[in-house]
């Protein structure tokens, strides 16, 4: 289509207005690109620079902030805390979302209603969901009332701890991940599945040999996105967690440096560490994705037994 356009435009090249129209392309992009550069790339670079100038900014560049972070157990621990939330939650979210999306790939009863309801937590945002979780899962909430009625001796503590944050993250990210994967999986041509079935594949063979290799790249990206979001968890960790203890995540540490200690240099350093953590997660997933795709094809060629 583009080459067609170019070919059709060629004989008209002498007509001036047409050429002006072509030239307008890059100019239309300048304002938005400039905005992202000035308001996103520049602050990011400035943050990295600032993180390397500890104290009041005298003297040269130094990694003192980073050293201080990793040597202070109270700070360094946040990485572990964040990972202990992000990794299990991401695995759980993606596995469940993948299963549900896979089973629902050819539609399900009340599909439109269900997907619409699932948009709610995404649209309402973390703060409202956190407040609702504190109520619903709280010691006096409906869930614990139900459990007590069912014969449980004491209410279970589901809020203001690790579990609360896990619930909050799951409620937020499961619908997100599910809708993403549902769009992806239902886009796969059903004829591929039919072809495999007719050729002798049982439902499990269809999944393992045909659909999983096609789904895996999308699932990997979904995994990466959910992990990155989980790694930056802030409001849920404060509102339904224990921000001074079990759920003091790295985002909380960065926020406290910036807005409670007013140490922008150290805050920037922590933000950089947070970004690096997300990047590492992203890279691991993308590397795995490459391997996944490769072995998917390789085992097929080997001709399983």
């Amino acid at each position: 289509m583009r080459t067609e356009a170019a070919a059709a435009a060629a004989p008209l090249a002498k007509v001036r207005p047409a050429r002006r129209l072509e030239g307008a392309g890059p100019a239309l992009l300048v304002p938005s690109a400039l905005y992202v550069l000035v308001m996103f790339v520049y602050p990011f670079c400035y943050g990295v620079y600032l993180s390397l100038r500890p104290g009041k900014g005298e003297g040269g560049l130094s990694v003192a902030n980073y050293l201080a972070f990793f040597l202070d157990p109270w700070q360094a621990r946040t990485i572990w805390v964040t990972l202990s939330l992000a990794v299990p939650n991401t695995v759980l979210t993606v596995l469940l979302a993948l299963t549900v999306a896979y089973v629902m790939r050819r539609g399900i009863w009340l599909e439109r209603t269900i997907t619409t309801l699932l948009v709610l937590p995404i649209a309402l945002g973390t703060v409202l969901v956190a407040e609702g979780i504190n109520g619903f899962y709280g010691p006096k909430g409906w869930l614990n009332q139900l459990l007590l009625m069912a014969g449980l001796p004491d209410p279970i503590r589901l809020t203001h701890n690790y579990t609360g944050v896990m619930i909050a993250l799951f409620v937020q990210h499961f619908p997100f991940c599910f809708l993403m994967l549902l769009g992806y999986i239902s886009g796969i041509d059903p004829a591929l599945e039919h072809a495999a079935r007719v050729l002798g594949a049982r439902p499990w063979d269809v999944f393992r040999r045909v659909l999983w290799p096609l789904i895996a790249p999308g699932a990997a990206i979904a995994f990466a996105l959910v992990f990155v979001m989980n790694f930056g968890v802030f409001p849920s960790a404060v509102l339904v967690g224990q921000p001074a203890g079990a759920t003091r995540t790295i985002a909380i540490a960065a926020y406290q440096q910036a807005f409670e200690h007013y140490d922008m240099s150290m805050a920037s350093a922590i933000a950089v560490i947070m970004g690096a953590g997300q990047l590492v997660g992203l890279i691991i997933v993308l590397l795995l994705r490459g391997r996944l795709a490769a072995t998917g094809v390789a085992t097929m060629g080997a001709g399983k037994r």
């Binding site: 004829a191 039919h194 094809v297």
Partner: peptide
């Protein structure tokens, strides 16, 4: 055996 309108060849194989 079945042959499909859009061939339905497995794209990853």
């Amino acid at each position: 055996g079945m042959v499909f309108q859009n061939y339905a060849l497995f794209p990853h194989l």
